[in-house]
Computed example of a mutant assay.
Amino acid sequence: MARTYRLGFARKLANVVVGALLARGVPAAGKTGFLLTTKGRKSGLDRTTPVNVVEFGGARWLVSPYGTVGWVHNLRAEPVARLHRGATREVWDVEEADGAAAAPVLRHYVGQVRVTAPFFDAAPGAPVEEFAAEAARHPVFRLARPHT
């Protein structure tokens, strides 16, 4: 059974440390680590969190390994993702993937970002069909096009 994500003290501290490193351009979460800034759906204020952007099938993807968290709600309300790491800044329009499109991305993601594997019922390397069952619990967004 997959673990449930809880944003406790240790996770908050880790996010602060990783966020500070990413802001300075240090690849703390590997080459896939970025800071994602979204517009708060209720407050309208900027919200920033560390994420991993993975490449798969010729596209770049944002995966929510911990479920429908705040940044997911924010992207659903306004599908614009601002990514940065050090001096690198990108702004993308995003599109949420349906279950069929999300399944192979989730499988790839768990293989790339192994620290998130305990939050999935499907094991790394499991058939894509097992990840299709996970798609409703782990939203996936494609970086569709640069935002204008």
Rank of each mutant, 00 (worst) to 15 (best):
R76M: 05
R6K: 13
D46M: 10
G40D: 06
T148K: 11
S64D: 10
V54R: 03
R82D: 14
F141M: 03
S64W: 05
A122F: 02
H84V: 10
T148A: 14
P104R: 01
A122I: 01
A117W: 03
G99V: 04
R11N: 09
R89S: 08
V16E: 13
R3Q: 14
G40N: 04
A126R: 02
A123T: 10
L143W: 05
R142T: 05
G40T: 03
E95G: 03
P127W: 04
L83P: 11
V18Q: 09
E90G: 05
A135R: 10
A29L: 15
A28M: 04
R89A: 12
L7S: 00
P65I: 12
A102Y: 04
A144G: 08
A10R: 15
G125Y: 07
G44Y: 02
A102W: 03
Y109E: 04
G99K: 02
K31M: 08
A14K: 08
F119H: 15
A136W: 05
F34N: 06
F9Y: 12
R137T: 09
F119A: 08
V91S: 13
R89N: 13
V115I: 15
A59I: 03
P50F: 00
K39Q: 15
T48A: 03
P79Y: 06
E78D: 13
T38D: 02
K12I: 05
L106P: 01
A103W: 00
N52R: 10
R107G: 11
V17L: 09
L75Y: 06
A123R: 14
F34I: 03
H108K: 13
P127A: 06
R41Q: 01
G44F: 01
V16N: 08
G86K: 02
V115L: 13
R85H: 01
R114S: 08
A102S: 09
Y66L: 13
H147K: 07
T48F: 06
H73M: 15
E90P: 05
V18T: 13
V51S: 08
K12Y: 02
R145L: 05
R142A: 08
P27S: 01
V18D: 09
E134H: 14
K31R: 13
P118Y: 07
V51D: 06
E130M: 10
V105I: 12
H73C: 12
H73R: 15
A144E: 09
G30A: 00
P79R: 07
R47D: 08
R6H: 09
V26E: 00
V16K: 11
L143E: 04
P127E: 06
M1K: 12
E134M: 11
V91D: 07
L35N: 00
G8C: 02
V54L: 07
H108Q: 12
A28K: 01
L7Y: 06
K42E: 15
A97T: 07
